[in-house]
């Protein structure tokens, strides 16, 4: 037996055909996770009972595995009559799971802005709204850009979890080939290498971005 290179190469087009699906799932999930995470952090800053509750929710999400969340959403939502496609459930699961991490990214990104910045904005008589738009938000975005990019890579590498819900992304396609041909090694190795290459290329891009952000506007 061993590794059949010709067979492996023949499986590349089929698996690579799902790369668009993989990237869009990762992108939509990352946006969803960032939106929920940002909301979590904003509400947490309100403090009080609501803030404590959100802190606990974040801790709970971060203490539980992605796979368990995918099963939970996949099997529990229909129980309450909510029928969604497995792709939707998968994106929801990824968004929810990573929102707990992105909440911390936003927290760190906002806390890293020195207090003097909003004081200077007030001393210049900028309105609160203008201070947020022109002073706080741009600095927050600069602070979170690199960690957000790193989490995008993490989310990308987690998209093959959706194969468990029979979403036809790259790992799903690899398993399709495997179950048709009874040869698992080649398609799985191909899928693995594609993900590895994607992760390395994007991580490299994030690193370069980080270096550029550090170079400009360092204080």
């Amino acid at each position: 037996m061993g590794f059949d290179l010709a067979f492996a190469l023949s499986s590349v087009p089929t698996i690579l055909g799902a790369i668009g699906m993989t990237l869009s799932v990762a992108l939509v999930s990352c946006i969803g996770a960032a939106a929920i995470g940002f909301l979590f952090d904003v509400v947490r800053r309100v403090g009080g009972f609501v803030g404590l509750t959100i802190s606990f929710v974040i801790d709970f999400i971060r203490s539980t595995p992605l796979l368990a969340w995918l099963y939970f959403l996949y099997f529990v939502l229909p129980f309450y009559g909510i029928r969604l496609g497995s792709l939707t459930v998968g994106v929801m699961g990824l968004s929810l799971y990573y929102s707990g991490y992105l909440a911390e990214v936003f927290k760190a990104g906002i806390d890293a802005i020195p207090k003097g910045q909003s004081e200077a904005a007030r001393a210049l008589s900028l309105s609160r709204r203008d201070a947020v738009i022109y002073v706080i938000a741009p600095q927050m975005l600069r602070n979170i850009a690199a960690p957000l990019g790193n989490y995008f890579v993490s989310i990308l590498k987690a998209t093959p979890y959706l194969a468990v819900l029979a979403v036809p992304e790259m790992l799903g396609r690899a398993f399709d080939i495997a179950s048709e041909t009874y040869r698992y090694t080649e398609p799985l190795v191909v899928a693995g290498l594609i993900f590895l290459a994607l992760a390395l290329v994007i991580s490299h891009g994030v690193k370069r971005l980080e270096r550029r952000l550090l170079a400009v506007g360092a204080r």
């Binding site: 020195p114 001393a123 900028l126 600095q139």
Partner: peptide
């Protein structure tokens, strides 16, 4: 608005050029 303030730690906006630091309030306020 009739006061200007200078801080010990400068508190310039690091993401804006020197010129934009100065024009921000002129334009927005």
């Amino acid at each position: 608005r009739q006061t200007g303030m200078v801080f010990q730690s400068f508190n310039l906006f690091p993401h804006l050029t020197v010129l934009s630091n100065c024009t921000l309030a002129l334009q927005r306020v």
